[in-house]
């Protein structure tokens, strides 16, 4: 596996036709998951014109996936407000394009692809903005604005240490190659298996494993073995 394989454009390539995927991966014939079944039902209701019912079902899908989606988006964008927007847009896009959803893909795979492509677009546009405009005052990090004793650790010192540790980790993740970063995030932040990551990224499963291992090795080197 040569290193140039990971230097390709970051955006995830279009989804392969479901028939071809099913032929390549026997696992695609696995029992249909609850969210996939729900997505198929929503699609059928939209096709019948029963949009209100479809939307009430869709809110269940949102509830099921939004926490994981927010984690992934936040790790990509490192900005809670932008991550929020990215998640919202991804869900809206899912509902608007539900007619094109095919159950050969698990819903989670389809949705995550949409989300990640949205996040990558946002990263690209942010990089463009930063090239042309001087940023205003950055302000404190978002977790620094959280009230002490809130959702996080109530001890200020522990919070400070956690913030530094997280910043170090985020910086190390950011130093990874585009593909390695995507694959690593999906696997370790999005709780996806290498097979699911393969389906999301369109990469071969063994390639995903190689990327994962290289990313982990690099991270250990960047962080000196301590996260």
């Amino acid at each position: 596996m040569s290193d140039h394989a990971v230097q390709q454009p970051e955006r995830l390539s279009p989804v392969a036709p479901p028939a071809a995927t099913a032929a390549r991966r026997p696992a695609a014939a696995a029992p249909i998951s609850e969210d996939t079944r729900l997505a198929v039902e929503i699609r059928e209701q939209v096709a019948r014109g029963d949009v209100d019912q479809a939307r009430s079902l869709f809110s269940g899908l949102v509830t099921q996936h939004q926490r994981r989606a927010s984690r992934i988006a936040y790790q990509y964008l490192r900005d809670a407000a932008e991550a929020d927007e990215a998640v919202q847009d991804a869900f809206v896009k899912v509902f608007s394009h539900i007619a094109s959803y095919r159950e050969a893909w698990p819903f989670e795979v389809w949705f995550t692809r949409i989300l990640i492509n949205g996040c990558l677009d946002r990263r690209k546009s942010r990089a463009r903005r930063e090239r042309w405009f001087v940023s205003s005052d950055d302000g404190p990090p978002e977790d620094a604005r959280l009230p002490f004793g809130g959702a996080g650790n109530p001890d200020p010192e522990a919070r400070l240490l956690a913030r530094e540790r997280r910043a170090r980790l985020a910086s190390a993740i950011d130093r990874l190659d585009g593909r390695q970063r995507t694959v690593f995030m999906l696997c370790h932040y999005g709780d996806c298996s290498p097979r699911e990551v393969s389906a999301m990224t369109g990469l071969n499963e063994s390639t995903v494993r190689v990327h994962l291992f290289r990313a982990a090795r690099k991270l250990r080197a960047f962080l000196g073995g301590q996260p």
Binding site: S59, V62, R71, D84, H188, P227
Partner: peptide, 22 residues
């Protein structure tokens, strides 16, 4: 690494915020 990232995101995306998102 995974736990730290999840905790960090969960601190920011509280249940109230997720409700607002919905």
């Amino acid at each position: 690494i995974g736990d730290e990232a999840a905790r960090e995101a969960d601190d920011l995306f509280t249940p109230e915020r997720l409700q607002q998102q919905q």
